[in-house]
Amino acid sequence: MNIFRLAGDMTHLVSVLVLLLKIHTIKSCAGISLKTQELYALVFTTRYLDLFTDYISLYNTVMKLIFLGSSFSIVWYIRRHKIVRRSYDKDQDTFRHYFIVLPCLVLALLIHHKFTFKEVMWTFSLYLEAVAILPQLVLLQRTRNIDNLTGQYVFLLGAYRALYILNWIYRHYTEPHYVHWITWIAGIVQTLLYADFFYYYFQSWKNNVKLQLPA
């Protein structure tokens, strides 16, 4: 464990807790893409298949349970909660799941480290996580209004993966044979997807104006 990875995990943890807290307190999911949240639940499910088979550390197991629990809770709130679901904008959140899931699945079947079920599922979860934010970014472009918490949520989500890139660089130089080029490429693609959002987020923060994404 290094500081970059710990900071990355904490940033990721805060991002999902900020979102869960927002939905739970104001009983609204305005501006949140259910599609993206469902994709994240799928990411965690396919990535943590080894939750009960390989014990790495208490930290690792606890964090996996938190990520699984929070992502499924968020999906439950938006789908089932009698008040929250009313604020879900299903007419705007129309990104098709299979446009993202299928290519990632095909890619995972073609490019992976080992052709085993768990390894292909793990690789699939990496590719999926890289693009899972797309429905959310599309929704933000469409609705154009980004309330603070949603902006912070997306920002923290992008920041966590950027910190992970620093972690991979650190581990590459400190651990022999630490080779995970699939992880590195997926992580870089993911962070680049946030790049333009970061740009507008910093512009709005610097000029102290409301965050507006260009149409």
Partner: peptide
Amino acid sequence: LDESHYHDEL
């Protein structure tokens, strides 16, 4: 791949 290919990251 060599056995260092472990998934210890979240």
